[in-house]
Design a protein around this nucleic acid. Structure first.
Length: 645
RNA sequence: GCCUCUUUAGCUCAGCCGGUAGAGCAGCUCAUUCGUAAUGAGCAGGUCGCGGGUUCGAGUCCCGUGAGAGGCUCCA
């Protein structure tokens, strides 16, 4: 007999070799029905695997990610099984579970295309196979035998994966006629897979290498209940409504034009206003924080980028240099502001007493992003960075990091932007030759970032190998409406440019020293920031930022005269106010302006005119009652004051 | 750049097996002058992304190309 310990610390004896599922059944059949995977002594395992020694056990119900992963991983096998039945000769790459569902990378063979039109037949086959209550059978064999098996099958992708595994036992999972190399864990069978939907097909390079074959990746999702599927699909629909490309068009914030060119955003007046408001907001804070605002041209001599090293690294993938009427001179659209800023630093001499110098610019840069990469405002070819560079002594680096983290936290908080992640990117310790700079400097910089984040109470994840080639960095990432992560704010250490531009300051010893340079952005790019702000607020901006703050809705023409007086009064009080003079009923005006997400609607009719009041309605909240006009101004000013802390 | 799909009115979309286009919203006009999420009627709006081809005839089929979507790769 063996002793099994449960999460509540109770213990129970079972016969050796009992499965997790049997343990669950012994507690209650209800639990057994709801459990999808188990963690035995810290390892997530199939429910059907035998437990052979005294163990602690945790059961995973649907709420746990371990359960979902087993569920979706098994679903991936189910899909593969269906594909194998429908597409003879199809070969399989990898098929993992992901955050929402699963995918499988397959090679259906030359000339065979799987497209969305094929989904219904694949889904039907999956349903058919799932219903047969197919058992998931775990098979353990030697590496050599596994190799032989997949060689006979002619699946070069699996044999490649096997050849990289360590010698010893390899696990396979067999589902009906489909056997796959797989570590598991899986559900015991496919009985619980009740709702099935394939979502999309996409190309994906084998092993993420663009030089290798493009596989067909099929994404799908499954649930144990149709209700969960319906909820998930409804959630996706809701997310689409928050898409900044859609809201940007609806609210007339920005547009794109084929004639102007792809990836080149056009800010319409309302969007440009909002963008400018963000710039003013940040500029005021930068001045309080001892930044110097500078301004530099949109182009630079190609020699500048040869000095910075960017030409060598990115020149071929950039907008190409433009020529002057005279021969021999070439200029590039600036892809970043830092080389210009380095030359501003070098325009005057510096002593240690000047440092740190914080140089900021809202600089518009141009990058030739690959065609397939462009996406709304989040990935464009022309964008404005809220860029700044801190030039400091090496010992000041940590303090500067803390300053920037503090600024990011303050800005994000002011904008009610709470759902962000901080990621520290360090160099890959096994691949140091990818980076420039000596070990000592790298270690110093990495330590400074980690300590600064720690001292600011910033919750970070650390990723090795993601550093820029010139230094480690700290990025602030935010998710968009459909769950993709985008980088907004960033702080990066750079030992490279001070060297290349031969930047110096005079130290206390009267000798020349090399400053350290930090690159930093808070919004990242205004385009991307506005996009994510739109998606996080669904277009309902904070009052201070909203393109229009108030709209006046006269009940009828009779009240236009008083309405215009109110309009002038509010606009003179610096409240951005519109008037809806369309010949429509009040219900229609309310509806339309609610949909335009204007924060306050003022209804004006006979009562209001007689009493010099306005009837206030807040977007999304409804009627707020009647107020004296002057009181309404104070009310709005108070709300804005509170928003800006 | 690569894979799959999409591209029809300002927007959202319909248009079957090929027989030269249709709805709702928005816009404009008229009537209505209205109290908290859609008043009614009428009008106007399209070389069906662009260029070729097949055909008696192409929005529809084929080829090329532009743009968009979802991924992959990339992201100073």
């Amino acid at each position: 007999m063996i002793v099994i310990k449960f999460p509540d610390n109770s213990v129970k004896e079972f016969k050796r070799g009992v499965s997790s599922l049997e343990i669950a059944e012994s507690i209650s059949p209800g639990l057994a029905r709801e459990v999808y995977a188990s963690t035995v002594n810290g390892d997530v395992r199939d429910l059907s695997r035998p437990v052979n020694e005294d163990s602690s056990i945790i059961f995973h119900k649907w709420e746990d990610k371990e359960a979902k992963h087993a569920f979706w991983h098994t679903s991936a096998h189910l899909m593969a099984s269906a594909l194998e039945a429908l597409y003879p000769g199809i070969k399989f790459g990898i098929g993992p579970s992901v955050e929402n569902g699963f995918y499988y990378d397959v090679d259906p063979g030359d000339g065979v295309v799987i497209s969305e039109a094929d989904f219904p037949s694949i889904e039907d086959k999956m349903r058919e196979l799932a219903k047969d209550n197919n058992k998931m059978e775990r098979i353990e064999i030697s590496k050599a035998d596994a190799m032989k098996l997949f060689q006979e099958k002619g699946d070069e992708y699996k044999t490649e994966l096997i050849s990289e595994l360590e010698d010893g036992t390899i696990s396979l999972y067999k589902l009906g006629a489909f056997t796959d190399l797989c570590r598991g864990p899986h559900m015991p069978d496919t009985e619980k897979i009740k709702a099935i939907k394939l979502l999309s097909v996409a190309g994906a390079y084998w092993r993420g290498d663009e030089k290798r074959k493009m596989m067909t990746r099929i994404y799908g999702i499954t649930f144990p209940k149709q209700k969960l599927m319906d909820e998930y699909l409804a959630m996706l629909e809701e997310a689409k409504k928050r898409d900044h490309r859609r809201i940007g068009r609806e609210l007339e914030l920005f547009a794109f034009s084929q004639k102007v060119g792809m990836g080149l955003p056009l800010w319409l007046s309302r969007g440009a206003d909002l963008r400018q408001r963000l710039i003013d907001f940040l500029t005021a804070e930068l001045k309080r924080r001892d930044y110097n605002i500078v301004s530099t041209p949109h182009i630079g001599n190609v020699e500048l980028y040869k000095i910075s090293g960017h030409y060598e690294k990115y020149g071929a993938a950039s907008f190409q240099p433009m020529n002057t009427p005279q021969e021999g001179e070439q200029f590039m659209l600036k892809p970043m502001n830092c080389p210009h800023h380095c030359e501003i630093y070098n325009a005057t001499s510096h002593s240690y007493k000047d440092l740190p110098i914080r140089m900021a610019e809202f600089g518009t840069v141009y990058r030739y992003e690959q065609h397939g990469e462009l996406h709304g405002l989040t990935r464009v070819r022309s964008f404005t960075q809220d860029d700044a560079h801190h030039f400091c002594e090496p010992d000041q680096m940590k303090e500067e990091f803390k300053n920037v983290i503090d600024l990011v936290q303050w800005v994000f908080k002011s904008l009610n932007f709470n759902d962000y992640k901080a990621q520290i990117s360090l160099r890959d310790p096994n691949n140091k030759e990818k980076y420039i700079g000596n070990d000592e400097n790298w270690e110093k910089a990495e330590r400074a970032i980690i300590e600064a984040a720690d001292e600011k109470g910033l919750d970070t994840t650390v990723v090795e190998g993601e550093a820029a080639f010139y230094g480690p960095k700290l990025d602030f990432m935010v998710r968009d409406a459909i769950g993709r992560e985008w980088q907004l704010g960033t702080i990066q250490v750079d030992y490279n440019l001070p060297e290349r531009f031969d930047m110096t300051y005079i130290g206390t010893d009267n000798q020349k020293h090399r400053p350290v340079m930090l690159h930093r952005a808070i919004f990242g790019s205004l385009e991307r920031f506005v996009a994510l702000l739109i998606e996080s607020t669904a277009g309902k901006f904070p009052l201070w930022l909203s393109p229009d703050q108030v709209i006046i809705l006269p009940i009828s023409e009779k009240y236009y005269h008083y309405s215009k007086k109110v309009l002038n009064f509010l606009n003179n009080s610096d409240i951005r106010t519109l008037i809806d003079e369309r010949n429509e009923k009040i219900g229609k005006k309310i509806r339309d302006n609610e949909l335009k997400r204007i924060p306050y609607l003022l209804i004006i009719g006979e009562k209001e005119e007689k009493s010099s009041t306005v009837s206030v309605r807040k977007q999304g909240e409804g009627d707020k009652g009647v107020m004296k006009l002057e009181d309404f101004v104070d009310f709005i000013k108070e709300e804005i004051k509170n928003e800006l802390g």
